[in-house]
Amino acid sequence: MIQGNNNSKEELALARFLFAHNCSFVASSATSLQLPMEKLPEVAFMGRSNVGKSSLVNALTGRKTMARQSNTPGRTQEIIFFNLSEKIILVDLPGYGYAKASKVKQAIWIKNIFNYLRYRTTLRRVSLLIDSRRGLKDIDDVIMNILDKIAISYQVVLTKVDKVKQIELAIMIEKIITKILYRPAAYPIVGATSVVSGIGILELQVELTRFANIKLSDLKKI
């Protein structure tokens, strides 16, 4: 099913409260030896190069330039960590599948990402971003196989949905649901987002807030 508007008032309030607060850069890691100390629950964003990871992180946090964006695929080569109000860490992973990158570079990126995914004990969820204009590719299936194997919960999140027709989007979502239905680590709800129109941003905020160290009593403190 599609991520819908069935969230409770409390869930919506918590998400708005959390993502309205300060989000700051923590660290960047070029190797698994440079990862910052594990402290808060983490949610990571990954996908093919130029899928819109940085743009989505910026839209979620309401900051235009917090996560650096590039029109050049493969430009982001490090794992970037952001602290959201001391409640949760947002992690921007390097894009994968950029064919023009050297095999050596690709191997380094893959090893770095894999080590993070496999050994990061604070990682709670991966948002696996898919460009809605492209759909699932073979490399995305490879990544899902890895996530299933190491038992990391992940949600398929479509980006740039403002650029496709509604009927095409509905067909694509149905196809994706069919593919992930029996995958053990896949979350059964497909997210659909657009940083241009704002579609699905609040719904994804709600989903990610479930992993944060935040509770209803925090709202009463403001």
Results as ranks from 00 to 15, higher is better:
2 I>Y: 12
7 N>D: 15
11 E>G: 02
12 L>C: 13
17 F>K: 00
24 S>T: 12
27 A>W: 09
27 A>V: 10
28 S>I: 07
31 T>P: 04
36 P>N: 07
38 E>L: 12
38 E>A: 05
49 S>Q: 09
52 G>L: 07
53 K>H: 03
55 S>Y: 02
62 G>F: 06
63 R>P: 12
66 M>H: 05
68 R>T: 06
68 R>K: 04
68 R>Y: 09
68 R>W: 10
73 P>H: 11
73 P>S: 08
75 R>L: 15
78 E>Y: 10
85 S>N: 08
89 I>Y: 13
93 L>F: 13
94 P>D: 09
100 K>Y: 13
103 K>I: 15
106 Q>A: 14
117 L>E: 02
117 L>S: 04
118 R>K: 13
120 R>Y: 04
121 T>R: 11
124 R>Q: 10
125 R>E: 14
129 L>R: 01
129 L>Q: 00
134 R>T: 02
144 M>K: 03
146 I>A: 07
149 K>G: 04
150 I>K: 01
153 S>R: 14
158 L>Y: 00
161 V>K: 02
163 K>S: 01
168 E>L: 11
171 I>D: 15
172 M>N: 02
181 L>Y: 08
183 R>C: 02
185 A>V: 01
188 P>H: 07
193 T>D: 08
198 G>M: 04
199 I>T: 14
207 E>A: 06
208 L>N: 04
212 A>K: 03
219 L>I: 02
